[in-house]
Design a protein around this nucleic acid. Structure first.
Lengths: 202, 202, 202, 202
DNA sequence: CATGAATGAGGGTTCATTCAT
DNA sequence: GATGAATGAACCCTCATTCAT
């Protein structure tokens, strides 16, 4: 089956990656065997290994994609926001989308990424890069809001950025851990309001 | 009718648990082998398995201890607080302690616990229980603060509790992932202030 | 009714064989993968397999060529010899040539052939045939020399042939194993002299 | 089955080594799988790997033993020899023993060792060491014989040593390759006589 | 009770070969 | 006739766990 288009090859690679994401989101990086991924992909062992040289490389690719999506959605969702409430609302909305995929619950990969980052320097670097960019983005927004009078100018913009990120991370984590106990709307409302008033005393 | 005292047995059990925590915090649940734990404990394989029937049981025991400590410290640290700033400040202070142990960085176990909870129903239940109690506790505090006029009474106390927990979880997570980039004091200051003003307009 | 000329096909076949020899002499039959041979040949997997049905067949072809060269050079080099010293000298000279190819060190294939002959009956037969012919040739020379008075007539000509072959095989082997320690000229001198005097007492 | 004697452990290790030698002598290093060795050893995979960390380590151990035996037998067999014929006779006798083991034909490992030495620097070093010692030993004997008047003093002792080694190596190789065609006694007789006369003209 | 040698299913990965294009 | 993506059996090795001593 030679002389196939680059497009074809990329599709095949996606096919493997998607299968792997489905498996890993379901069972975790370590409890899931390559045999599972291979079966799910519908390809043979050899083919899977043609596209990803090792399980680690496959995991790294998944993490790259996940962090890329996360960063993209988060920055996009809060891009034009002019008040803390809008930032938080947008970011939580984006975060919620992660759970909406009926095929794959991407969010389930997140704690695994954090765990992996603790052991794997390459992944640690990726995570640092992604979160670093997000922090920078939020930092910029905070500064703009302070300039625009919607955020207390005495707050450290960097500190604000970290706390905002916490609101998102905590939301996803608690949604994963306490599924039935946390209501997205309630959480978003509380978070938005709490951050919203942060400039009232200016 | 044991030949040795119960005290002796409990000490041995602690010895194993401590060794396991050290290993798992360092290398992760999956990358760490029982051989590592056995070596670190100074006991024999048979002995380790006398106290913990399986690796999973050992992990479960560690998680129980970790969640217990977390819950204890968090509720204790925020017990008498009467303002959001005090709650957050106390909780973050307690969270910071987790990193202070020069021997073991307990915090490194946290993402692993979250990851494990996604696959292991027993652990999921444990985590739900612990975080549920924490949420209840924070809920109670929120209600008290609303009654005391230090928190906007229009906010949903449960929502506030979740957001407060997020502040703690996000802090620990970001400290783990972005070590050099996050300053505990700056974060605490920003968080405290942001939550503090939440009743200003009342 | 091929579209391409037989000549073309033979050239392609040579191309594959040469690439394989280069690879196998370098890395050994087993450590070298077909992928290496395919890459080195500049052809595709399908093409390589068009000319040689399997790795084993390729190896067999290489061995056939190698043994043919060996037999040819050895018999030719000692063809007109009338004294033991001439035989040995000629044979060692021919053997030395094997090392002289700057591209490929054919000699490195020799121990591999011996090893392969132990497992593969087809190759064993080839090796027996080649060495058998060489022995016959040396036998004939020995008989001639005995008749000519340059070799002790009491010696068994077949025994003499085997010992002479040993001188060559040992030379090549030791040159491969002890590269820096063995000097071709010294070895040849010693061997020639030792065999040379074998008729002195007649 | 703990608290076993060191002796017991060594016996087990021997058990694995012997099984491996039997397998490798039969089928070759590469065609023989660890599964074969494991089956032959009568132990489990885990146990085999307790005693030898990898297939390579097992092969290295076998080669060490083989070269040790070879060196030991060869030097011992020719230790007190005072004439070339005695040296050759002794060495060939020792070499013949290698074939006599009804359980394992150690000689079949020899070409494999040579082959392996071409690719594996560690083994190359071992082989160089062993053969180097043998050469030194034969060198010493040659010098003694020259002093004693049983070997032409004009011969280079080192060259003589190499040629003598060739006689042994060639004998073993030809016995392996041409089994039915070579008679140990005939070969030994021819070799002994040819070398024996090497001092006649002194 | 403690010991640690033994277990063996299962892990990730490779590679000679094929055949649809 | 050439291509090279696909195949899958087989490879070497690990590791949680057990049980004879």
């Amino acid at each position: 089956m030679p002389r196939v288009s680059d497009e074809y090859l990329l599709e095949r690679q996606e096919q493997v990656l998607d299968a792997a994401i489905r498996c890993f989101a379901e069972g975790g990086f370590h409890a899931t065997g390559m045999a599972d991924v291979i079966r799910e992909s519908g390809l043979s062992a050899g083919s899977v290994y043609r596209y990803y040289k090792s399980k680690d490389e496959l995991i790294a690719a998944i993490i790259t994609r996940l962090l890329g999506q996360l960063h993209g959605r988060l920055t996009q969702a809060s891009a034009g926001a002019t008040t803390p409430a809008e930032v938080i609302g947008g970011a939580l909305g984006a975060a919620s989308q992660t759970f909406d995929n009926t095929q794959i619950n991407y969010a389930r990969l997140l704690p695994q990424v954090w765990t992996e980052a603790l052991r794997n320097p390459d992944i640690a670097r990726q995570v640092q890069g992604s979160y670093g960019q997000i922090i920078e983005h939020l930092c910029g927004l905070a500064a703009q809001m302070q300039a625009g009078g919607t955020l207390d100018p005495q707050l450290d913009p960097r500190g604000v950025a970290h706390v905002m990120l916490s609101a998102v991370q905590g939301f996803m984590l608690q949604k994963l851990m306490l599924a039935q106990d946390i209501d997205s709307a309630t959480y978003a409302a509380a978070a938005s309001q709490m951050f919203a008033v942060a400039a009232q005393d200016v």
